[in-house]
Simulated scan of single mutants.
Amino acid sequence: MSPTTPPQAAADPRMADIPTVKSGFEQHRYICNDRIATTVYLAHHLQKPVLVEGPPGVGKTELALATARLLELPLVRLQCYEGLDESKALYEWKYGKQLLYTQMLREKLSEILDGAKDLKAGMARLHDFADVFFSEEFLEARPLLQALKEPTGAVLLIDEVDKSDYEFEAYLLEILSAYQITIPEIGTIRAGVPPIVFLTSNNTRELGDALKRRCLHLYIPFPDAKIESRIVEAQVPGLSESLRKQLVAFVHALREADLKKLPAISETVDWARTLVLLNATELDADLVRSTLNVLLKFQEDAETVDPELHALTRAAKQAV
């Protein structure tokens, strides 16, 4: 095995084939299409990270959460932001513990140097203690290193990687290609069981080619009405079939409008829960107007839609 070849993951019956992956997700209330199930299947067997792109709120983060539930693995999440560096993402030294260790050495300095015949011999003894000073015992693992050190594997979610800097992408390359981290003072730490890695992006900036080359690519668009109806049914079982179809038809019509922020799947689900809470049986313009703030998060979008509410509601009811 070459130094850059990750160890092989054990076969998992939950990843036996693509239909098994898809049905497993459905059991955990994550409704997906064949393309998503295929990508996760390949990521597991090829040990390749997955770069998941698409509009906000289409289930990119939820895919990682569902995979962790499906495989019963710990989820390690790193939320990216501008200025994120290795001390927050990879590792840092336990400076307080190192300071305490330094004080202990100072107190025992005479004992350590006792019997040293010359300066060279004394320095050699101190050097032995310096090696301990920069060891894993004094290392504080951050999310990326935590995921590599999980003994049975993990799902590593690097969320909104497009919000990080180009310099941070460089820190990721070694992990994404070989599932290892090189720490200058210690050496290379490799994963015993490679994690399943998901990187999500909302396309706020272009990601580097080096990062993309290391990943499988998955684009998740807004789902069609059939898939979204199944998602709502899985997440909000208390909603009637008729109202669920009206709700989905209305949301899909909103996504055709010229809005600042289109309603996401998560907001469709929230609206469904709202309608259940209000004991609604069908959509009407007044009900929609009073709950529109669940779907639309900008006042200008609400003002854009308001004159069309009666027509949109009528069309949604006719779509059933």
Rank of each mutant, 00 (worst) to 15 (best):
D12E: 14
L105N: 13
A285E: 14
P143H: 09
L84A: 04
L105F: 14
I31R: 11
P194K: 09
V155M: 08
G208L: 01
A311R: 13
S229G: 08
T204Y: 08
Q299F: 10
V236G: 08
Q27L: 02
S87H: 15
E150L: 02
E233P: 00
V155T: 09
V50Q: 05
L99Q: 15
A302S: 10
H310W: 05
A253G: 05
T61L: 11
F298Q: 10
K260T: 14
K149W: 07
I18F: 07
A43W: 00
T313N: 01
V197Y: 06
L73P: 12
G54N: 04
A43M: 04
D224T: 14
S242K: 11
T5N: 07
L119W: 12
F198N: 07
I227V: 13
I189F: 03
A225Q: 11
L78D: 08
A130F: 08
A121H: 15
P13S: 13
L105E: 06
E241I: 00
D131C: 03
L145C: 06
K108P: 00
A249N: 08
N279E: 15
I158K: 09
V236H: 10
Q103K: 12
L119V: 09
S87E: 11
Y101C: 01
L277D: 04
R255Q: 02
H45W: 14
H44P: 03
S110C: 08
A280V: 15
P7I: 04
E241P: 02
A264Q: 01
R205Y: 09
S135L: 07
T182G: 05
S164V: 02
L277T: 13
A37R: 09
P194I: 10
R314L: 13
H252V: 00
